[in-house]
C-alpha cells in the first residue's frame, strides 16, 4: 500500500514538472511567475523614475 502511495506521489510530481517545464509555453510560464512573485505587470512599470529622467 505504502509503495502505491509513494509511486503515485512521484508520478504526480513528474507530471507537474513536465507540464510546467516542457508543455507550458515560456510566455505563459513568465506570466505565472510574475503573478506569483507579486511584481507589477508590464504596463505598471513606467513610474517616471528611470535613469534617463533622473
Amino acid at each position: 500500500m505504502w509503495q502505491n502511495l509513494a509511486s503515485y506521489l512521484i508520478v504526480a510530481a513528474a507530471a507537474v514538472w513536465v507540464a510546467w517545464s516542457v508543455l507550458l509555453p515560456r510566455a505563459w510560464r513568465e506570466r505565472v511567475r510574475t503573478r506569483l512573485s507579486g511584481a507589477p505587470r508590464d504596463g505598471d512599470t513606467d513610474c517616471g523614475c528611470g535613469r534617463d529622467n533622473a
Binding site: S7, I10, V11, A14, A15, W17, V18, S21, V22
Partner: peptide
C-alpha cells in the same frame, strides 16, 4: 536528471 527522469517516470506509469 530532469526531462529524461521525469518522462521515464510518466512512461513507466
Amino acid at each position: 536528471g530532469t526531462i529524461i527522469l521525469a518522462m521515464m517516470i510518466l512512461i513507466w506509469f
